[in-house]
């Protein structure tokens, strides 16, 4: 059904059902960690996660009703942000660590073996601390993640597509407001919380841009074997930004 036909509760339920499973690296990363080993593991995971992300996007009510090119465009623009918000969510109960997968977690020190990673790690750890302080709920998290996808690009193929997308975003915003409304907050605290949650998204966009530049740099230096889908998504990003 179209998201407008769903209540906010039903939409949240659909977003919860769309959540991807835990994705395992399935390889033991032997110590000592090196730049090559860490980059290989992280790009391997990112590539696997991309496939699950496409399944996730297709389950978001209304997404597949957008034109195919628009679906492609939105996913290309937001894929690293979506992966990063997932990483932050998984890491929220593990202060000082980033949980890349159930079988791969790295501390700041372990991540520092990759050149240029510390800055990105620190930004991700800071965003995770903020999410911890805000006590983000699962219902709010699924809405924010859908918003990242739907708000990743405003330039769609037609004005019809753009209005479809805006209606989708409105439905997800209503769902987020309704999730916040389930808490014991006063009205004033509720809209402050809404603002705080939405402000997180600009930080995530910023880290994602840093991460994209880093990955591009690593590719240029032949530091990592890039998997086909990951390479396609990275190239699309470079193409759009140039």
């Amino acid at each position: 059904p179209q998201p407008s036909a769903l209540t906010s509760e039903q939409l949240i339920e659909r977003l919860m059902e769309a959540e991807p499973p835990g994705i395992y690296l399935m390889k033991d990363m032997k110590k000592p960690l090196t730049e090559a080993k860490v980059m290989m593991s992280l790009t391997n995971l990112a590539d696997k996660e991309l496939v699950h992300m496409i399944t996730w996007a297709k389950k978001i009510p209304g997404f597949v009703e957008l034109g195919l090119l628009d679906q492609v465009h939105l996913l290309e623009c937001c894929w690293l942000e979506v992966q990063m918000v997932g990483l932050i969510w998984r890491s929220v109960d593990h202060p000082g660590k980033l949980i890349f997968s159930p079988d791969l977690s790295l501390s700041r020190e372990e991540g520092s073996c990759v050149q240029g990673f510390v800055e990105i790690f620190d930004m991700l750890l800071a965003a995770t601390s903020r999410v911890r302080e805000l006590k983000l709920q699962r219902e709010e998290y699924v809405c924010l993640k859908a918003m990242i996808l739907l708000n990743s690009n405003m330039c769609l193929s037609s004005s019809e597509s753009s209005s479809k997308l805006l209606r989708l975003l409105d439905a997800v915003t209503d769902a987020l407001v309704s999730a916040i409304g389930k808490t014991v907050l006063t009205f004033r605290q509720q809209y402050t919380r809404l603002a705080h949650l939405l402000m997180l998204l600009s930080h995530i966009r910023h880290v994602s841009n840093k991460g994209m530049d880093h990955l591009h740099c690593m590719k240029m230096k032949n530091m990592v074997p890039l998997y086909d889908l990951l390479l396609e998504m990275l190239d699309a990003h470079i193409m759009h930004s140039s």
Binding site: V51, H52, I54, K58, V64, L68, E232, D235, A236
Partner: peptide, 24 residues
Amino acid sequence: TSLKEKHKILHQLLQNSTSPVDLA
């Protein structure tokens, strides 16, 4: 190169009715 050729895998995964996870 057409946009479709540049984004071959993503297009295929989005277009296919089978779950992309099963395809992969």
